[in-house]
Write a protein that binds this DNA or RNA. Structure first.
Length: 896
RNA sequence: GCCCGCUUGGCUCAGUGGUAGAGCACUCGCUUCACACGCGAGGGGUCAGUAGUUCGAAUCUACUAGCGGGCACCA
């Protein structure tokens, strides 16, 4: 006899199957030998090499794997391509930290050695997240794993850079940028964090040059006044109309600065006059350009005051300088007032340092043309298609419309060094390689730009650089555009939009048909999980505690809406996994004699017993639902359909209904065919479940006494049987049987009502009862055919069925839909009062429902305007209730 | 300031014009020969509020309130 534990141990299954799938090459698209097969492609959003798996990854990977496994089983050639990105800033941060422990700075090491250390660090750490992805069960094709700094992908980066430069879409310029004084690099607008702060607003007086009095300006950053080169007012502000053009004396430095008029200034705010610091504020920078103002840099790249700030300030930290400025204004009587003020401050997304706007020379990518490509694609062809469309399509297009040029250089060493070289004369040569640069320059004396590119620049090329671009590889032709991108909403701008733009630019096709935006798993208080808050849940710990499959079901259920983490939910899916395990255990313990399971339902359903026709109908409807749900990214709905089918239909009813035949001692053909059918339904259910629960389903499927290769399409002729390559069940319309479902429902209702009587009349579970059933001809034959099962499931010793039955007075009764009645004789046991109360409650319920329906029907507008089938349906329901009410009245009368 | 989302039983969430659902929690009864990570039977919601559209609204529209998010920022 087979020995199967009562409790499913997920670790056992997780240990074995993944390695086997991977070794045998099942994840690679080549496993499908049909060159005509449709193609399904996903590229993974590359995690940082520095990172480890968090809940967001687990969520996205679950959905990607569900889709990939589903399509693979549906006969597609599927490619899910894994990889990581090099994460310039964070990796450099990590390596720098490591060096610091050795008492070294990156400059002590020098660029080459530093980069070598970074590679070493990458080799040591990339393995971790790759192991974690394996643990998830992700069916990614490891043979195509990529890293953004691989030679091939780097080639794509340089190619893209050169092409964009040659077209004038990349340029080098001197502009105001977001500078991180800690990381010592520029950041793009998207890497800036806006952090609300409680601060102060300082009102400073600037005296006129040639007359008494002063103009008051308000500022949150007094130290920047040292770099002021003007004061601006609104041209329509009458208060200041006559001072426009006059000169002020900038206190502390005694610099002469003009009063200019600019529409940007809002008269209502502060004093209505704005100090202008072109070198240290983006808006002032713009204003400075409009009025030809001098740019005086008073803060340096370390956020310290420069010589230009004056001898007293030079070398001070910006915050020390602030205090000193205020102190001096106060002593000069030029500090009008200081008020509390809330505003947002720009911080570095990674290290949270307050950024310093600085003017510096950087490389930029012009976005106007690229943006237009993306917008046109969206407006004319609706691509890519966002799911859910609301609100993401609008979020995406709104952002594109207001797009500014992208700062792509970074003052870092780890990353793609900008492929620009400078000659001694200062000429710039942009080329794919140093050799090409030398050839272009006609000289070997070149110095390469020190900076590297923003990591997102290489990520933007990911959907095609990973497939071999710029070469026209077979992979590129076959797998691009990819089918769907699954990602979190916070990188729609950083990443999704940029991939679309580069894809359209370089390939002429959008990189993916669909973009599915997942919801976010929040903590139990509704807060986003984050490292700094320390409220994150480690998916690996959840895997350990509840199993990977249960975790996957939980995450798939999140879908596209934010959901609070609820461990009880995982527990319930763990229980579901155990339920599946035990259902299979039952089937296996009763599998002796079951032969040719794949032919268990041969011969068509016409002569099958009701419960077989019913479960086939339910199974095929479920297959239909789940296929449709997965095609529309309704992960939550698919999980619900599967859960309901397996637990409620298959376990609670089909298995129970089958037991009468299956557990028979004798080796009869009826018993054996019923056993085969039970296993067949289980086998198909496992295939339906597999994309969500890969480990459990493989484990059980392998144990089934079936000819496994029968379920594998021919294109896998050389593969060992595995459920992951078996065909995904499709709906066979011929097996959808509404009549069987209606009839089965009547049987289920009957059994439920009798159980209700047993419970309410306090009949002991072990006590056998007698059932008297009265039903009209059609229902009568249905009940008659199922009488053994009815007896078993109501624990009845005897079941009598007839058209008309004399119901004993001492019986508990129930009136069913369709006018059927059931009585449970309870000689001497029945409490008349209790039974009357029970039936009255039931009658009240019916009455309430009937009243509601009647009032609807009483409305002439309803009858006139509602669709006729709705009206008919209503009438039928009323009639049924009326019939049942009459019957109930008779029973009540008899109990008097 | 602009834009968006959410508000359904104690909790976490489904449900998008026609009889309010699930899981968990709760009550009662069960060591019934797959499963106590279980089985059977129950209780519990005027679907945030107001007004409207409609024969009919949890579902569509408008407004209000609360919560959450995005974007732009006022120095």
């Amino acid at each position: 006899m087979i020995d199967i534990p009562k409790i499913y141990d997920p670790k056992e299954a997780e240990r074995h199957h993944y390695a086997r799938w991977e070794e045998r090459g099942y994840f690679a698209p080549e496993i499908n030998a049909n060159p005509e097969a449709p193609v399904f492609t996903i590229v993974i959003p590359p995690p940082n090499v520095t990172g480890s798996l968090h809940m967001g990854h687990a969520l996205q990977h679950t959905m990607m794997d569900v889709l990939t496994r589903h399509k693979r089983m549906c006969g597609y050639r599927t490619l899910w391509l894994p990889g990581t990105d090099h994460a310039s800033i964070s990796t450099q941060l990590m390596v720098t930290r490591q060096l610091k422990k050795e008492g070294l700075s990156r400059h002590d090491l020098g660029r080459d050695k530093f980069v070598e250390r970074a590679w070493q660090w990458k080799r040591e750490h990339a393995g971790q997240i790759m192991r974690q992805i394996r643990r998830e069960g992700a069916s990614v094709d490891w043979s195509r794993e990529r890293f953004t700094m691989d030679e091939e992908l780097s080639r794509a980066v340089y190619e893209a850079f050169v092409r964009l430069y040659d077209e004038g879409l990349i340029y080098r310029g001197n502009r105001i940028v977001n500078w991180c004084p800690n990381d010592q690099t520029v950041l793009s607008d998207l890497e800036v964090l806006r952090d609300p702060q409680k601060g102060k607003l300082y009102y400073l007086r600037y005296p006129f040059k040639d007359r008494d009095g002063a103009i008051t300006v308000a500022t949150t950053r007094p130290e920047t006044m040292l770099g002021d080169t003007a004061v601006a007012v609104n041209p329509n502000d009458e208060r200041y109309a006559e001072v426009i053009g006059r000169k002020l004396i900038l206190p502390l430095l005694n610099r002469e600065i003009p009063i200019v008029a600019d529409e940007f200034v809002e008269s209502e705010f502060g004093s209505g006059a704005v100090k202008v610091t072109p070198a240290h504020d983006p808006n002032d920078y713009e204003m400075g350009l409009r009025h030809n103002l001098e740019q005086v840099t008073v803060i340096d790249q370390f956020a310290r005051m420069t010589e230009a700030a004056g001898a007293e300030f030079a070398g001070l930290d910006r915050y020390q300088a602030r205090d000193l400025v205020i102190e001096k204004f106060e002593s000069l009587g030029l500090l009008e007032k200081v008020i509390d003020y809330e505003f947002s401050i720009s911080k570095c997304e990674r290290c949270k340092t307050v950024l310093e706007p600085l003017i510096s020379t950087q490389w930029f990518c012009r976005m106007d043309q690229l943006r237009d490509l993306a917008l046109r694609k969206l407006r004319q062809e609706g691509k890519p298609r966002f799911v859910p469309q609301v609100p993401y399509e609008k979020v995406y297009s709104d952002w594109l419309e207001n797009l500014r040029d992208w700062t792509i250089s970074r003052q870092l060493w780890w990353g793609h060094q900008i492929p620009a070289w400078y000659t001694k004369d200062g000429d710039v040569i942009v080329a794919r390689s140093v050799e090409e640069a030398k050839a272009k320059a006609g000289t070997g004396e070149l110095k390469q730009d020190e900076d590297v590119l923003d990591t997102w620049f290489s990520s933007a090329l990911w959907p095609f650089s990973t497939l071999g671009w710029p070469d026209e590889t077979e992979d590129l032709k076959t797998f691009y555009p990819t089918s769907v991108l699954i990602t979190a909403r916070d990188i729609i701008f950083l990443w999704v939009s940029r991939m679309v733009m580069t894809g359209l630019k370089f390939i002429g096709k959008e990189p993916f048909d669909d973009v599915y935006v997942t919801g976010t798993v929040l903590d139990k208080h509704g807060q986003r999980m984050s490292k700094t808050k320390g409220n994150g849940i480690d998916p690996l710990e959840v895997f350990d505690k509840y199993g990977v499959d249960a975790t996957r079901l939980t995450l798939a259920s999140v879908g596209s809406t934010d959901t609070r983490w609820n461990e009880k939910q995982v527990e319930s899916y763990r229980n579901f996994a155990n339920k599946i395990w035990n259902a299979a255990r039952f089937c296996l313990l009763n599998s002796e004699g079951a032969e040719a399971v794949e032919h268990a339902f041969a011969g068509g359903p016409a002569n099958f017993p009701l419960h077989d026709r019913w479960i086939l109908s339910r199974l095929n409807k479920t297959a239909s639902e789940v296929n449709a749900q997965l095609d529309t990214y309704d992960f939550h709905g698919a999980v619900q359909s599967l859960y309901h089918f397996f637990w409620d239909d298959f376990c609670d009813w089909y298995i129970e209904l089958s037991k009468a035949t299956i557990t028979a001692e004798n080796d009869s053909p009826e018993r054996n065919i019923a056993r085969a059918r039970l296993i067949s339904i289980l086998e198909q259910s496992l295939r339906l479940l597999h994309p969500f629960m890969p480990y459990l389903t493989e484990e059980l499927w392998q144990r089934l006494p079936v000819n496994h290769s029968q379920f594998l399409p021919r294109v896998y002729a050389n593969a060992q049987p595995t459920i992951m390559l078996a065909a995904y069940p499709q709906c066979d319309e011929a097996l959808v049987d509404e009549r069987a479902e209606t009839e089965m429902q009547a049987v289920i209702d009957l059994i439920s009502r009798v159980r209700n009587i047993r419970s309410e009349m306090n009949i002991k579970p072990g006590d056998r009862i007698e059932l008297l059933i009265a039903a009209k001809s059609d229902l009568q034959s249905v009940f008659a055919a199922s009488s053994d099962q009815i007896a078993r499931l109501t624990r009845a010793a005897q079941v009598s069925i007839d058209g008309q039955v004399e119901m004993p007075k001492t019986s508990a009764r129930a009136v069913l839909a369709g006018g059927a009645e059931v009585a449970v004789p309870l000689e001497g046991l029945i409490d008349f009062a209790q039974e009357r109360a029970r039936l009255s409650r039931e009658k009240d319920k019916l009455q309430k429902e009937s009243d509601k329906l009647e009032s609807q029907l009483a409305n002439p507008d309803f009858v006139a305007r509602a669709p006729s089938d709705k009206v008919a349906e209503l009438r039928a329901r009323i009639a049924d209730i009326a019939q049942r009410t009459v019957a109930l009245d008779q029973v009540l009368e008899a109990l008097r």
